[in-house]
């Protein structure tokens, strides 16, 4: 039975019920408590609990994101079978995160229930050298204000794949702007580029870095990322996720000193139209 999630304790108890069995334990429920609390408040979460697996659904724009906590891959597969029987018409998207070599059984469990590979993201990291980024202020790059939120989101919606790149909603963008985590470059009235970042302790994460097609090859992206590096002087590492087949982007990140991490994120989709 699929039940709505009405409070954080309900979710915590459900996760705790899933017993671990040796090395087979699998999960992709990595959202921090603040994020899950926001989803619960928006009534966006529901769950399906079985004895050895928990599936959590999050309503998104026209589809559901699917998270799992499972004792092992067979338990996950059984729960996916129950979910697909209960919601045969639902479009489901899931992120399978882990080391390349450890994802096989979890991917297979999804393939068995007509999930198809959509994209692979890979994580890259860059260690911060204390003297490398001098923090010079570029007058062309400014922190976004509340009035920029709609045009930042519009640029993201034009450029990003909603399944693999999780476009932030307006509230998330407002929070990021309030924290000073959104950098923009404008050309006249137009938004030329945006960079969204986030820092926890010694780790900074480059969430989004995009330049409008009309303003590419004009140094807008370089200005944004150099400003960002200047803001990361107190961090020890910078992380980002990039689409594994996007050779141009990967080459650009390597140019700026990023190296491959061991983690990948396999995004899989179950589309009822294709299942039929």
């Amino acid at each position: 039975m699929i039940l709505p999630v009405t409070d954080a304790d309900q979710l915590a108890v459900a996760v705790g019920r899933v017993a671990r069995s040796g090395t087979g334990y699998a999960t992709n429920l990595f959202a921090p408590p603040t994020e899950t609390a926001r989803w619960i408040a928006a009534r966006a979460l529901s769950l399906l609990q079985e004895e050895r697996a928990l599936l959590v659904l999050r309503r998104d724009a026209g589809f559901h994101r699917l998270y799992h906590v499972a004792s092992d891959a067979p338990a996950l597969s059984a729960a996916l079978g129950s979910l697909c029987a209960a919601m045969p018409e639902a479009m489901l998207v899931t992120d399978l995160v882990g080391k390349r070599e450890s994802l096989g059984a979890v991917v297979d469990a999804h393939l068995l229930h007509a999930f198809l590979p959509h994209a692979r993201l890979q994580r890259m990291y860059r260690l911060v050298e204390p003297s490398a980024d001098d923090g010079r202020i570029d007058p062309d790059v400014v922190q976004a204000g509340p009035g920029d939120v709609h045009r930042v989101r519009a640029l993201m919606q034009r450029q990003l794949d909603p399944y693999s790149e999780q476009i932030p909603d307006l509230d998330q963008l407002r929070d990021a702007v309030a924290k000073g985590s959104v950098l923009v470059v404008s050309r006249g009235p137009e938004l030329a580029g945006v960079l969204v970042h986030d820092t926890v302790g010694f780790t900074s994460t480059l969430r989004y870095w995009h330049v409008d097609e009309r303003f590419r090859n004009q140094g807008v992206g370089a200005r944004l990322i150099k400003t960002f590096f200047g803001l990361c002087r107190d961090s020890k590492r910078i992380l980002l996720w990039v689409i594994a087949g996007n050779d141009d982007a990967i080459a650009r990140y390597r140019h700026y000193g990023f190296r491959d991490d061991a983690l990948v994120d396999d995004i899989m989709l179950r589309q009822p139209r294709l299942v039929q």
């Binding site: 999960t27 990595f30 959202a31 921090p32 995160v97 882990g98 080391k99 820092t199 926890v200 302790g201 010694f202 780790t203 900074s204 961090s235 983690l263």
Partner: peptide, 13 residues
């Protein structure tokens, strides 16, 4: 966690 040395993915590892 607060120092950003381990995130939730690292915790599972």
């Amino acid at each position: 966690i607060a120092d950003g040395m381990l995130d939730s993915i690292d915790v599972i590892t």
